[in-house]
Amino acid sequence: MKNKHLIDSEIQQFAFDESECEKDVVEHMSSCSLCKQRVEDYVLLSTSIKSIPDPALGFDLSKRVLMQLETSSKKKPLLDYFVYALITLSGLLVGFCVACFSLFCINWFKGNSTVSMAFIICIALSILMILINDIMKSHRRKMKMLKF
């Protein structure tokens, strides 16, 4: 049996989890009125805590939550319709632009003579050559840097 008084955690363990107490603790409790009193204090404290009324919100929570769920589910399809409408509209717009541009190109090719066509193609090809040359140069430079 323990001759010293029990420490606070042992007192609380006896008050709330008696089955988990060491044999020494139980034996001490059977003969020490001071420690018994300390256990009783904790039991009393627990009873007092239990008797405090539960907190409550000042409104019907379930009603408010259901209302929010209803409004959010109503909002969702509306938002979906708006997004679909926007996608369709932008698709139509892009299609219209492409159609206009191709019409313009066809008319432009039809309206020019073969000489000027050859001239334009030559310019385009030379620009392309310059660009390819530039790309090759920068590629070689990067490869060199990698080797270092």
């Binding site: 001071l34 009193q37 300390r38 009783e40 204090d41 009393l44 404290l45 007092s48 805590i49 008797s51 405090i52 009324p53």
Partner: peptide, 16 residues
């Protein structure tokens, strides 16, 4: 400890 338990018995819910 008697004082102790006396206090706890006397405590009002609001204080706790």
């Amino acid at each position: 400890s008697q004082v102790d338990s006396h206090i706890l018995r006397k405590e009002k819910h609001q204080i706790i």
